[in-house]
Amino acid sequence: PLGKGGLKTVADPNVPSTKPGELGSFKGGLKALPEAIAAQLGDRLKLNWHLTRLDRTERETYIAVFSTPDGQQEVEARTVVLTTPAYVTAELLEPLQPEISSALQALTYPTVASVVLAYPVSDVKGKLVGFGNLIPRGQGIRTLGTIWTSSLFAGRAPAGWQTLTSYIGGATDSEIGNLDSEQIVEQVHRDLSKILLKPDAAQPKVLALKLWKRAIPQYNLGHLDRLQQVDRGLKSLPGLYLCSNYFGGVALGDCVRRGFERAPEVGEYLQQQSDSRSI
């Protein structure tokens, strides 16, 4: 079959089939995807290279200036794809295209913490079958919602245990960033005790906690207008492409789809450049 842009896609017979609406993941967790990409790229992948400046040349190319473990490095390229967050992209493009920069600066990224806790199954009120639960803001519970991780995917908890991944913070609770790790865990545990756990549930095993000061971009009122402003600005920067989660969805599947859509656009531009130089 042909995907968008004419890119041929072939189903891998080793990938288990899923039913419509059914979720899937990797046995080793989502890190399996970037690790597989890194393995394919080999030494073309550069780690700890921080893009500090992007300049446009008279040759219609770009000079990307990087801070690296080996000092400053410069790379000249006909095309550049920026997958950075809006606030990073805004800073990089401010000297080149202020219209794009101002639109991206208006995007907000609230603070969110992800908390992974494990409880004995005997401490859970009932058998958890399903994806998880979301909590409306009017319920007096601070946690945003909980994914029933070990109910969704096999191998996420040993026998007799339930793994729960909760998210707390968000656009209406920026103060979560002022709490330390122990306070965040205690708040999530109190909230879970009101919903999923028995009254005498013991303290959980803390498997992971990650606080993102700037988490998921918000598609607030006027978002489409800002994206149109970005598109107008990009017309003056041929060969530059933006491919981040402030476009058309933040989920992993959305990001993968967006990458497949951008790739043929970049390839077509490079082919046009090659054709024009050969004339």
Rank of each mutant, 00 (worst) to 15 (best):
G6I: 07
Q97E: 15
H223P: 09
Y219E: 00
K205Y: 05
V185F: 13
A263L: 02
N178S: 14
V129D: 13
L196D: 10
T18R: 00
E186M: 11
R142K: 12
A251M: 09
G160D: 07
P13T: 04
L196H: 05
E76C: 06
C243S: 09
V206N: 04
L270G: 00
L2V: 10
S17N: 14
P95V: 07
G170K: 07
V75S: 06
W161M: 14
E186I: 12
S193N: 11
Y241Q: 11
S278E: 12
E175L: 10
I279Y: 02
D43R: 01
E182V: 15
D123A: 13
V81C: 11
T9L: 14
L7E: 00
Q73E: 03
F26M: 02
R257H: 06
R53T: 02
S244L: 11
I135N: 01
R78S: 15
Y119H: 03
V81D: 04
T111G: 00
I141N: 07
P158D: 04
R142V: 02
T146N: 13
L207G: 04
P136Q: 04
A201P: 11
A113R: 05
S101N: 09
K125H: 11
F260R: 00
T52I: 02
L224S: 13
I279N: 08
R142Y: 04
E91W: 07
P20V: 15
Q105V: 03
Q228K: 15
P199Y: 11
L41C: 15
L240D: 12
I100L: 13
D200P: 10
S150H: 11
E261F: 09
K19I: 08
I176E: 10
Q203G: 12
G259T: 04
A86H: 11
L240K: 08
Q162A: 13
Q271Y: 08
A157P: 02
K4R: 00
I216K: 01
A90S: 11
Y62P: 09
I135F: 03
I37S: 12
E265F: 03
T61F: 03
A118S: 13
S67T: 06
V188F: 06
W49Q: 09
N14F: 12
R56W: 14
S101K: 03
R190I: 12
D43L: 06
L45F: 02
K198H: 06
F247A: 06
F260A: 14
F131M: 12
T68W: 03
G5F: 05
L82V: 03
V115Q: 04
G28F: 08
L2A: 08
